[in-house]
């Protein structure tokens, strides 16, 4: 059952979104890019709405990006500092959400170390829009959307096309290669979903221990020869080793991981001259990506971060404003 639009709904993952639903977010985000260049970087779209930000895991870019997005939409932002809150005293997720809900909120942006935490919250407070900002190993939907947005943006610029007008055409036949710790990556799960939905071909390369169980049922090809796959790729997405989730014990060592799966200068040379390099961050320079590669002109890392704001504005606007047609 696929979701035709995220308007007025929670956004928990990307697996169920139709191509139309994804394109609606990307196109809406395009309209918010322009806000960034205004002198007053604010639109009244969510004036009077309350967005709570609830991060149970540390985060720099996602949290700042969401809170900036909410403020640019003129929403009031309730930001719960989990580390210094009643959560530390043992309060349950259900009670914390109930407390915040009692203050009157329209949406909650939520990150949690447990897969399914966003689903749980959407069960506890079904009248609140839940926007998943990363749940365990499961999904990180806004990252997937901003990755797709960034990719369409650069492909459209190169082709001299208008992004929204191009729809998903620039993804048709596009070869996306995702390299690294797929097993522990919620970004990989969201990226696979969004790229395949848009019509791209997705390949995965990882040490055997860092492929997820059941990957053969994913709509992807697992490549054995990374160097050969690099030569075919139009875009390479790198993922860091998630050592906080135990991935350190899945490979013999960082140096060996770099040798087998890092985007070193030598491997970078195998890429097509037109290929792009992406990384959702945080990057561990010298492990999965050589420092010089991270700073190369075709690396989109900073652009991904910058696009986080308009994409999250689009997600907040669509999910919270819902079917209403508020002025932008």
């Amino acid at each position: 059952m696929s979701v035709e639009s995220i308007r007025g709904r929670s956004l928990l993952g990307l697996e169920d979104l139709s191509r139309e639903a994804v394109l609606e977010v990307l196109d809406t985000a395009e309209t918010f890019v322009e806000v960034h260049s205004r002198e007053v970087k604010k639109v009244p779209a969510l004036r009077g709405r309350v967005v709570a930000s609830l991060f149970y895991e540390e985060s720099t870019r996602t949290r700042l990006s969401f809170e900036t997005a909410a403020k640019r939409l003129s929403a009031d932002v309730l930001s719960l500092a989990v580390a210094s809150s009643s959560v530390k005293k043992g309060e349950s997720l259900r009670d914390t959400i109930a407390t915040i809900d009692a203050l009157g909120i329209d949406a909650v942006v939520m990150r949690h170390a447990a897969s399914g935490a966003a689903q749980a919250v959407s069960r506890y407070v079904p009248h609140v829009r839940v926007i998943n900002a990363g749940d365990g190993l499961h999904q990180h939907p806004t990252q997937g959307l901003l990755d797709a947005f960034t990719l369409r943006q650069v492909l459209a610029e190169r082709a001299g096309l208008d992004g929204p007008a191009s729809g998903s055409s620039l993804f048709e036949g596009l070869n996306v290669l995702i390299v690294g710790d797929i097993r522990h990556s919620r970004v990989a799960r969201s990226d696979v979903a969004v790229y395949t939905t848009l019509g791209a071909t997705v390949r995965l390369a990882a040490p055997g221990t860092l492929l997820p169980p059941g990957v053969e049922s994913w709509p992807v090809e697992v490549v054995g020869d990374l160097d050969e796959a690099l030569g075919l790729a139009d875009v390479v997405c790198l993922l860091r080793l998630q050592r906080e989730r135990g991935s350190g014990t899945f490979v013999p060592g960082l140096a060996e991981f770099t040798r087998t799966h890092g985007l070193t200068i030598e491997r970078y040379a195998r890429l097509k001259s037109t290929a792009f390099v992406m990384h959702p961050g945080p990057m561990i320079r010298g492990v999965e990506i050589d420092s010089a590669v991270a700073d190369a002109p075709n690396a989109l890392v900073e652009r991904q971060v910058a696009n986080g704001v308009p994409v999250r504005m689009a997600v907040l606007y669509l999910t919270v404003a819902g079917l209403g047609r508020e002025a932008v």
């Binding site: 749940d135 365990g136 499961h138 997820p212 169980p213 059941g214 049922s217 135990g246």
Partner: peptide, 18 residues
């Protein structure tokens, strides 16, 4: 280990350790 559900395609998709 830290598994919480049956390990397989579904655990891989749900992001739960199997």
């Amino acid at each position: 280990a830290d598994g919480v559900m049956h390990e397989g395609a579904l655990s891989g998709r749900l992001g739960l350790v199997g």
